[in-house]
Computed example of a mutant assay.
Amino acid sequence: MTMFDDRERAEEAKFARDQEMLFRITARRNRLVAQWAAKQMQLTPAETDAYAKAVVQADFEEAGDEDVIRKLVGDLTAAGVEADEPTVRRALEEQAVEARRQLMESR
């Protein structure tokens, strides 16, 4: 019986680690895509840092990426930068790859 209990605990621990890594990748991705958008909007370094924090916070509004996409498209458009949803989605995908790479290298 303990063999099954040990296996169950190991699976639960793996699931928890995987979920934490996914959260960290998403947060890093959001920060990176915010920096990309800030560069497009020509923000100062201080404004870029504040904007990155705002984008990371925006991800907590609802499940999925739609809240982040809405924020980025809205902010870019308001700043006079021509950006549409497919462009922002592509940037999110690219930055997700970079975020994963960065976190894997830091291990």
Rank of each mutant, 00 (worst) to 15 (best):
A50I: 08
E66S: 14
A91V: 08
S106P: 00
K71Y: 15
V55K: 02
T44A: 12
Q42T: 13
N30Q: 11
T87M: 13
A78P: 03
K14A: 15
A16Y: 04
A34F: 07
E8I: 01
Y51R: 01
D18T: 11
E8M: 02
N30G: 09
D65H: 05
Q19G: 05
M104D: 13
E11M: 11
L72N: 06
R100A: 15
A37M: 09
K14N: 09
A63M: 05
T87I: 08
M41H: 05
E85L: 12
D65E: 12
Q19W: 04
E12N: 12
A52W: 03
R9M: 12
E61I: 09
V55W: 05
D75H: 11
D6H: 01
I69C: 04
K14E: 14
G80T: 08
A58L: 05
A10P: 01
P45W: 04
R28A: 15
V68Q: 01
A50C: 06
D18N: 13
E98S: 11
T26Y: 01
A13V: 03
F15A: 13
A99D: 07
G80N: 05
A10Q: 08
N30Y: 10
L72E: 09
G80R: 00
E62N: 14
R9A: 13
E61F: 05
A16Q: 07
A52T: 05
L72Q: 05
R28E: 14
E94L: 14
R9C: 08
K71H: 14
K14W: 12
A78Q: 10
L72A: 11
E105S: 14
F15N: 00
A27L: 11
R17F: 11
L32Y: 02
E12D: 13
G74M: 09
V55F: 07
G64P: 04
E82R: 10
E47C: 10
A79Y: 06
D67R: 12
V56P: 01
V33K: 00
R89W: 06
R100P: 01
Q57S: 13
P86M: 11
E61C: 03
Q42M: 14
Q95W: 03
D6E: 04
D6N: 01
V73N: 03
M3I: 01
Q35C: 06
E85T: 14
Q42R: 14
A16D: 07
Q19N: 08
L32V: 03
G64R: 02
R107V: 15
E47R: 09
E66R: 10
S106K: 04
Q40Y: 07
